[in-house]
Design a protein around this nucleic acid. Structure first.
Length: 286
RNA sequence: GGUGGGGUGGCCGAGUGGCUAAUGGCAGCAGACUGUAAAUCUGCCGGGUUAACGCCCUACGAAGGUUCGAAUCCUUCCCCCACCA
């Protein structure tokens, strides 16, 4: 927000949970007031039951950046979904058209299979991808069966050219994060997180992807009376910490280190670090 | 006071003489990641030393004992839970 005060800025949220309408409190969406002060894009863009993708987001984000630039504004990409940032700044591959019906059928079949089975399968059709996670295995099989090509080949042969080069500002309070999380969770409850969840439970299917945002499953259990408030807070804290850890790992190892500036928001000198970063950068995620 | 059940590594919880530094799970640490990514997975995980194999130390409530060998068997003690008084 401080950056947006320095020059005209449009904030582009690169956050795979803030995209969902209705999941407001637990995803820490920018408030109405904040959005009035600074234009935000990328928040509330899809229905909570919808399946979305990093590629769809990156396409949309491209137009938001163009819009912002057209208005003479700086586009500041903010958010913690590493894959979205990669899709935008590194470019995914050019995906061939996939038949949605066959795709859905296949998904149903594969859903019944054990991860170990899927892994053996991928071992034979696309070995480099076999050590990856279940989601990646499903994707590998889907692409192989629907296109007749190995996903890892497509990655190499159909790479897309990125339109921008980002400079990254990684904002991390380090060990102080724990204390901040406690306060944050507390305020989420005060804002009515539990009621939000009760409302969503009525309208949104239980298997909608939006539900796997950190803490939402726990609050759902709390609302159902299955756990105590204290243990809910404890579990949310754990999920939050684990998510933050995965983000750190991603940003530490997946970003090009020569384009990364790290800043601790609790450091007294944070402003000068951010100023220096702003001076040498144009479009950049935090 | 009596009877029965139980005390295991940060937590939960298996294990009833050697294959046990001790299955599993959780938490933690490190890592992977190109279209569901706040997702999905992988490795490590008592301490010391080693590049590694290994070696040494400490450890299954406490103290003794039996045994070539004990988390596992015996004795005493401490604590927890249930029931009876």
């Amino acid at each position: 927000m401080w950056i947006a005060e320095q020059r005209p800025t449009t904030i582009i949220s690169a956050d795979s949970r803030q995209i969902y309408r209705g999941f407001d409190i637990g995803t820490a969406k920018p408030t109405v007031v904040e959005q009035r002060g600074v234009p935000h894009r990328g928040v509330d863009i899809v229905d909570a039951a919808a399946r979305y993708s990093a590629a769809a987001w990156a396409d949309a984000a491209g137009t938001w950046i163009d819009d912002a630039r057209g208005q003479g504004r700086e586009a500041l990409v903010v958010g913690g979904t590493g894959l979205y940032l990669r899709a935008l700044f590194d470019g995914l591959f050019e995906e061939p058209a996939l038949d949605p019906v066959r795709r859905a059928e296949l998904a149903t079949t594969l859903a019944a299979m054990q991860t170990a089975e899927l892994r053996r399968w991928v071992e034979s059709i696309d070995p480099p991808r076999a050590p990856l996670g279940r989601a990646q295995l499903l994707r590998s099989i889907e692409i192989a069966l629907l296109t007749g090509h190995r996903l890892s080949d497509l990655h190499r042969l159909c790479a897309r050219q990125p339109r921008w080069q980002a400079r990254y500002l990684v904002v991390d309070p380090g060990p102080a994060l724990a204390g901040r999380s406690v306060a944050r969770i507390d305020s989420m409850f005060q804002l009515g997180w539990q009621n939000e969840v009760i409302r969503l439970t009525r309208d949104i299917p239980a298997d909608a992807p939006a539900w796997n945002a950190a803490g939402y499953g726990v609050v759902r259990n709390l609302a159902a009376g299955e756990i105590t408030r204290a243990s809910a807070i404890e579990q949310i804290l754990i999920e939050t910490r684990q998510y933050a850890k995965r983000q750190r790992t991603w940003f530490r190892n997946q970003l090009p280190s020569d384009r990364v500036t790290r800043v601790d928001p609790l450091d007294v000198n944070w402003k000068s670090t951010v100023e220096r970063w702003m001076f040498e950068s144009h479009e950049s995620p935090a």
